[in-house]
Amino acid sequence: MKRKFFDLLFRTATCLCVVFSCAVLLAIIGFIVKQGSSAVSRAFLTGEITGAGASGGIFYNLVGTGILLATTFLVSAPTALSIALLHGVYLRNYRHREKITILLYILNGIPGILFGIVGLVVFVQWFGWGKSWLAGGILLGFMILPTVSVTLIERIASIPRKYIEAAAGLGLRQSEIVRSVILPQSAGGLATGLLLGLARAAGETAPIMFTATIFAGATIPNGIRENPVLSLPYHIFILAQDSYSPEVNSRLWAAALVLVILVFAMSIVALPARLKIHEEADHG
């Protein structure tokens, strides 16, 4: 009797932990939607920022975040693919592979602000770029490298062995197998990893605040030097600090809502595929 009671108690307690976590997510989303949805309009999405955020819209913030993400994509996609191929195909020694994984985990742990500080020295000062979209894209690209690479590595590891054996049995050389079996089979993994990585990059503020983005007064860059962009997270970061007028407030929440939608849209497309791979890898 006592054991049954304890069993019930434990189930309830752990269940409450789950309920709490779900409630936190719902509360956060609910709150942002409630506060922000009234100010989201077509004019808000297509208007330029005016009056230090009190009027106008976030058009160039969206454009800027888009430019940063495109650059991030171009930096991280080839690099992550290279790392994953090296890990899954070209490195035969288990220890060497292990080293790559460990380096990726360390890179994953490095706080975003340190990327920003190093970027400030290298790009802003040494290269003399000032604040530039390219610096932000490169830094974000490095930051999401572990996310993209690890997803891709898991995907390559889960390619059924018989595909590769069949290709080898047909007499294909290594480079042909990579091109005709491994790359097509892992394309989904690359897409998933990139979506998850870019979802993270879209909301990052710390790496770009000293290196790539300003609050107002930038449109579309026409070069590299002294060509900052506006961005959604930095916009929210600045407005959050020094505005209490209701005008700003509703636009601030609207910008937050747009950012959350952007991030969730990318994650939701990517998640089911990733979770499935992950679960299968656990039980396989």
Partner: peptide, 15 residues
């Protein structure tokens, strides 16, 4: 549950 967790993890820190 895992999707809930991942979404929670996905909310940007500025939010």
């Amino acid at each position: 549950l895992k999707i809930v967790i991942e979404l929670l993890a996905g909310i940007p820190s500025v939010i």
